[in-house]
Amino acid sequence: MERHLKEDIEFADVARHASVSRFHLHRIFQRHIGMSAASYLRERRLACAATELLNSSKRILDIALEYRFAGQDYFTRSFKREYGLTPRVYRNAFRSFRPKNKEDNSMENFAKKQLPPGWMLTGVYPHQYEIGIDRTTVHRGKASGYIQAGASADASGFGTMMQTFRAEKYRGKRVRLSAFVKTENVDQWSGLWMRIDDNSENPLKFDNMQDRPLTGTTDWNPYPIVLDVPESAEAIAFGLLLSGSGKVWVDGLRIEEVDLSVPLTAGDETLADALPDEPFNLDFELEPSNAV
């Protein structure tokens, strides 16, 4: 679907491509994405059309037809219902959010930008990264969040946009963090992450996608993180991280309880599980070749 937004899409063809029935496709799509396949397709086309409005001088009619809307009137009604503005008003109101020159990416300008409400920037060398709101590159809706490395970002460090909330509601339950993520020129790695902490801020569970990192340049794709929340949990932290150069966008973040049939994305091993039962090789006589 993502590769054919400017073409006519028949869901029967999508179902055949996925080797499932059309009914099964719609049921699974609704469960994992949180909306029907038809609604998703419409919102993605509107989001791409919104980007075209801000980044091109194409006529509104041409953009409408390009994204398979049946005329400018229908496109205008759909766009206003989603964004609260007509395409023409939206174009005039938000074009000022586009970067005007390369200086907008300087570290000096990074420091001047305000953080998105509810989010904080941290990490190792976080001053080498910028987080913010992007109104021109979005997955659905009016805006996405992003993290971007400065020109001098140290590859041994990382930056993360994050927030933390109380775990009480999810104690003893399995929780899924999901979001759509897009990357551009990531040379080290990036990914979503979620951590479960106790009341001493000790991590109980953690997954940062390090075993399945997002690198290079990728289009919008959905990614999940699934963890069990222990009864002793006090806080849940989550966010998006970037190590090294590049830029990463995130949109449509959701945190929800899921049933135990949803597989964990990180091993459920605790610290105690990883420890040996007894001390080992205290006299240093065991050769490396004999160690098992």
Results as ranks from 00 to 15, higher is better:
R174Y: 03
I147Y: 07
K182I: 09
R176K: 13
T183C: 06
Y170E: 05
R98A: 07
D104S: 15
N105V: 10
P117W: 03
S144D: 07
P99A: 01
H127K: 12
G145K: 14
R140T: 15
M161E: 08
T160H: 05
R171K: 15
R171D: 07
R140M: 09
W119N: 00
S152W: 10
N109W: 12
F180H: 13
R88F: 13
Q128P: 07
R176E: 13
T164H: 01
N185M: 05
G145V: 06
S156C: 10
A149P: 02
A153H: 03
G118A: 03
V186K: 08
S106C: 06
R98L: 15
R174H: 02
R171G: 05
G172W: 01
A93Y: 11
K113A: 14
M162T: 13
Y146P: 08
P126D: 06
E184K: 12
G141N: 00
Y129Q: 05
Y83N: 10
E82C: 05
N101M: 04
A179R: 00
R91K: 15
N92H: 11
E130C: 10
V89I: 13
G141S: 03
A151W: 09
E130P: 02
M107C: 00
Q163S: 09
F158I: 04
I133C: 02
G191W: 05
S190K: 02
M120Q: 14
S144A: 14
Y90E: 05
M107Y: 02
Y83G: 03
Y90R: 01
M162Q: 15
F158A: 03
K113L: 09
G145M: 14
E168C: 02
A167V: 05
A153Q: 01
S156K: 11
F94L: 11
Y125M: 05
R176H: 02
L115V: 11
